[in-house]
């Protein structure tokens, strides 16, 4: 007899499935209300197990940023602070040289076969 609280696909697979359906989701804890990303089996804030996926607003702010250099040029890698609270690694699209800390950004799902969450600058979105 398994514990029904943990039945069904695990949170990683569930998140990926939602992403494939065009939904960028974060988990909310039914106990303390905190949002978390990446998804997990437990709430990393309170230890609760009642976690529910909800679509993220997509709103975020660049918390830190770097331009990764290679022969092909530079590409952005950023840590984005989501409006819901958690942070995630991602990429801000467009000229990497003009991505700054504090920049307001909006999430978008990019790529068909392997969808990834990227961010556009809010003023251009």
């Amino acid at each position: 007899m398994t514990d029904p609280r943990f039945d069904g696909p695990g949170p990683d697979a569930a998140w990926e499935d939602l992403l494939g359906q065009g939904v960028f989701a974060v988990q909310f804890c039914g106990n303390c209300g905190i949002a978390q990303f990446p998804p997990g089996v437990v709430c990393r804030h309170c230890g609760g197990t009642d976690l529910v996926f909800q679509a993220a607003s997509g709103e975020g702010t660049v918390y830190s940023t770097t331009t990764v250099r290679s022969r092909e040029g530079g590409r952005n890698v950023a840590v984005v602070q989501l409006a819901e609270g958690p942070r995630m690694m991602s990429r801000v699209e467009g000229d990497p040289e003009t991505v700054t800390i504090g920049l307001a950004v909006v999430a978008r799902i990019s790529g068909d076969e392997t969808p990834v969450v990227v961010f556009d600058r809010k003023e251009q979105a």
């Binding site: 830190s64 940023t65 770097t66 990764v68 890698v77 840590v79 690694m89 990429r91 800390i101």
Partner: peptide, 17 residues
């Protein structure tokens, strides 16, 4: 998926902050 250099880009993000 984001192609950060490991581990250097992580330290770069800390330095930038």
């Amino acid at each position: 998926p984001y192609g950060a250099r490991y581990p250097l880009s992580s330290y770069a993000l800390a330095a930038a902050r």
